[in-house]
Design a protein around this nucleic acid. Structure first.
Lengths: 184, 184
DNA sequence: TCGCGCATTGAGCAATCACTCAAAGACACC
DNA sequence: GGTGTCTTTGAGTGATTGCTCAATGCGCGA
């Protein structure tokens, strides 16, 4: 997964995979049936761990909106040489495969939508808890949050310095905090 | 340029390029010396026309901040089947080549920084015109604007429907309009 | 110890990759 | 028409691609 994430589907060769998995081609094909099959399993693993980690982070937070703001700010703390300091694998994959590998691209879209669902739930909880007004559209906010996360991760990918990155994360976090209903 | 933009550096083969340019391999190498050379020229063209178009759009707008908001909203009007209805070529390139083609990745970063400079100028004009407070940081706003544009274009890439897209663009546009200094 | 079922091996497949170069063609000037 | 210069041509280069399969190794019950 790490290798595919770093190099992308097209730029990763079977030679690379043999070395990374310490398996010979025959074994790889016995287990995954094709490069595409192996990639799809790596992508599924990425999706599941990402979604799980997001849910866990939200559960730990003091409130839904606090969790969102905290999550956005957390991207500023990732060191530039960390393996997570690059674009979201779902974004990379969709960009890499949309024109050439429709099956993989479709899965990416599906997973992106799944992540958005997890975000929608957070905003629904915020509404239920009275943190956001009743007439808030949670799906719309989820898309906005996802847009922020994609952009932040792409900044990581670019290698943007910590100061600029935390300024951007701060702006985004405040954008969501400003939505908080003034307690009545 | 269109072909490279659509398929990316790795997924575009010389065969594809021969067909698109209607040139035989020999002529291509006489003119561009390598696939990388040809790609870099395509990327330079993308950068120059993008930057030019952005500057022209800003010049036409009633005020700097109006221009920014209008530009963001304009992404919602791009039809899904349009060639521009995909991620920014600079983003795609950086994502595609960071791990494998350092020279190309570096050029992408340079161009992204150049685009950000153009955006910084717009916010500087907004400050000079009294549209934004004197203590505003134009570079910080530029990075925020670029983040929004990257995210919007990636939504286009995903194939997000017009309704969701214009809702997102609207949220982003208002975010910048809200910065406007209340006239004193 | 033997035989059986299953996983692993890695040389090698056809296809494709980016790229080269000797030969033919195109064009301007006299 | 002839000559010199520059461009275009496309078959062919070796390397690499994703992938196959007969041969071998291994673990386990009898």
């Amino acid at each position: 997964m790490t290798l595919f994430w770093k190099k992308g589907y097209h730029a990763t060769s079977l030679k690379d995979l043999e070395a990374a998995l310490n398996m010979k081609p025959g074994s790889i094909y016995a287990a995954f049936s094709s490069k595409e099959g192996l990639f799809l399993e790596a992508l599924a693993r990425y999706y599941e761990t990402s979604r799980g980690a997001f849910a866990a982070e939200m559960a730990k937070a003091g409130s839904p909106l606090e969790g969102v703001a905290q999550h956005l700010r957390s991207y500023a703390d990732i060191p530039t040489d960390h393996p997570r300091a690059q674009a979201c694998m779902l974004l990379k994959t969709l960009v890499d495969t949309r024109a050439t590998e429709p099956a993989i691209a479709e899965k990416s879209r599906e997973y992106l939508s799944g992540m958005r669902d997890a975000m929608t739930e957070v905003f629904e909880r915020a509404i239920a808890a009275g943190e956001l007004p009743e007439d808030t559209d949670p799906q719309r906010l989820a898309r906005r949050l996802q847009a922020c996360i994609m952009a932040l991760r792409f900044e990581l990918h670019q290698g943007t310095g910590e100061a600029d990155l935390s300024a951007l994360a701060e702006d985004m976090a405040q954008e969501f905090e400003r939505l908080r209903k003034v307690s009545t």
